[in-house]
Design a protein around this nucleic acid. Structure first.
Lengths: 207, 207
DNA sequence: CGAGGTGAGTTGACACCTGTTAGGTTGACG
DNA sequence: CGTCAACCTAACAGGTGTCAACTCACCTCG
């Protein structure tokens, strides 16, 4: 081992220069996101583990966050914002509401597949880090409601966009969460399931 | 405090008589199920916590389980079997496949609502306790496939029962998991969502 | 140029919790 | 009296969040 006696952490990472102490803050958030990605559970993201991964001593965290739970809260919001960005660019991919909807669905599934840990923490964890959890989540859901409203408008369909959005979201969430949690089951292809969703909910262009 | 110096656990629970050492085994499984229910995460179910809740010293666990993970595995299978029983009696509630189906849906949602912790661990946790996880889960899913096959039969519907069962299960799972994880959101009533599911998937009796 | 202040981070220690092992203790039965 | 099931105590090596006090390099001021 390189460490003296098997217990001291390496402490790589150079000290930030004078004015830029905030760079460690974002490094810690990235490190926390990595740990979330790796374990898919908030309990595994200990303060010390985050500091270790950032190459910094545990107490350095206290310079940037009051507390362990505030570190976690900031890390979760960090994940929400990257998810929101991904969904927003997908929503803006086309003027055709049906194409944009499908694009959002693909982006949603892609996020869940590529970052299962983050997805799990965002959508399927009690998180419970106090106050109004997940403003980023609400913003993302609003994107979905708007997209569905545009489709229903184009179809002359009188259904409530919010209710349909709940249907769509719960269904998609069930798909990715269940497939992700039980990968040994013989699941159908996700594209097939997404097609089935559009069809069952009658969210296809009239042709 | 009653404890000598604030640290020793009480150790209630009388010693089992000669032949009946297995009673502690089931007590430990119940205690583990309680902890799963309380925290909804497997990480919170430490060997010591289970022993504490059963009123027994930590090392007593080793008389009945090889290991911490084997304790957890047995506890999860314990939960699966109670879930399966609940679903099976619901499925047998009526000869009318449509009534039986709705009964199963209600039972599923009821289990998820009444025991959110267990539900979460069963359906939405990586668990990953080795080998073929959750034989109880497969049995329960088969109940759903059979019920749906009966309905499609009655409808003369040529769809694949397995595929429809996946659709139903993913959707219901998404509903209960999302509603359970984010209780502050203004969700519609679950009965309304269940009705929407039956309607969207055209699983209603012709009238 | 030297003195001091301060931002950025470190060491060391605390009290507590974890899984696991080794070696008791208790008490009923043969 | 001995045996043996059922359990216990003590201890280990490691992990955790958090506090108090320290270092070290840079920046400014006189």
């Amino acid at each position: 081992m390189a460490t003296p006696s098997g217990s001291a952490p390496p402490l790589t990472r150079p000290r930030s220069p004078r004015g830029e102490g905030d760079t460690l803050r974002t490094d810690l958030l990235d490190a926390a996101a990595d740990l979330i990605a790796a374990h898919g559970e908030m309990d595994a993201v200990s303060l010390r583990a985050v500091a270790r991964r950032a190459g910094v001593s545990a107490t350095a965290v206290y310079r940037h966050f009051d507390d362990h739970v505030e570190l976690l809260r900031a890390a979760v919001e960090h994940c929400w914002s990257t998810f929101y960005d991904q969904l927003r660019t997908a929503a803006a991919a086309s003027d055709d509401p049906f194409v944009a909807f499908r694009s959002m669905g693909d982006a949603y599934v892609a996020y869940a597949m590529e970052r299962p840990g983050q997805y799990r923490v965002l959508f399927s964890d009690k998180v419970d880090l106090g106050d109004g959890n997940a403003p980023g989540g609400l913003a993302a859901f609003q994107l979905l409601v708007d997209g569905i409203a545009a489709m229903l408008d184009a179809l002359g369909d009188p259904r409530d966009p919010f209710f349909v959005a709940v249907q769509v979201h719960t269904w998609i969430h069930g798909m990715v969460d269940l497939c992700g949690s039980h990968p040994s089951m013989p699941w159908p292809e996700t594209t097939e399931l997404l097609d089935g969703l559009s069809e069952a909910l009658r969210l296809r262009p009239t042709h």
